[in-house]
Amino acid sequence: MSENLYEPIPMRIVRRYDLVENVRFFQVRPVEIERALTINYKPGQFMMISLFGVGEAPFSISSSPSRPGLLEFGIRKIGVLTEELFKLKENEIIHIRGPYGNGFPIEKMYGYNLIIVAGGLGAVPLRSLLLYALDNRDLFKKIYFLYGARRPNEMLFLREFLELKEREDLECLLTVDKDDTGSWTEKIGVVTELFKYLKDIDPQKTYAAVCGPPVMYRFVIDKLVNLQIPKHQILMTLERRMRCGMGKCGHCVIGSIYTCVDGPVFTYWDVLHMKDLI
């Protein structure tokens, strides 16, 4: 009998803590340790997390395949399933299947500059790409990480990203719309204002990856287009309702494509020539 791809595998929550209010970090590992190293994925892919009795939903992977063994997610409490997930403690079991989606075309990005632009929760999937690039630093040219959040206490992975600022082989630029703490030492303003710090970029040799709230895309894309980065080298990851992750259930269909298998990573060119993508 053929394999049932809908069958999730049990995973143990090994760590969980709040990244910011209502967004929680989950680090999980297959219960069977032999399976831990067999999960191959690409930055930008997602997995279906299942709680039997509650349901199943897609979540972007936040860890990098360059650090195998553990899977990481940054999950916002937004519905019934995530509320139940938030009730789970370390060492409890959840069920996961995947990975799904095209992920970032990582091989094509080798030898290129990377501009990673994240807004709010968009840092979750882009962290995977960022960590991957840092772990394979020689494969990429300049790396810029631009991350904007509304307030300091809404910035995910803040400490981790602040530490990255000490590295000389990437430019990590963090900004908040508003500092209500008085102790914020990074930039203030929207994420597009960080573009002025990008210097001497050969646009033809650059890939940009964008993820954030829908309102952010247009402004960020304008900036990237102004930098003359080719449309097919501007990548963005999109969100849709999904039930299967395998191009079957139809919920994520947009025109001719399934977000779950043809995406969730699309190029700006895809967005332009396909209707209703964003």
């Binding site: 053929s2 394999e3 791809l5 809908y6 069958e7 395998m246 191009g247 079957k248 298998v261």
Partner: peptide, 10 residues
């Protein structure tokens, strides 16, 4: 649709 990419067990 069901047999090629991600064959559907059911």
């Amino acid at each position: 649709l069901y047999k090629e990419r991600y064959p559907d067990y059911y």
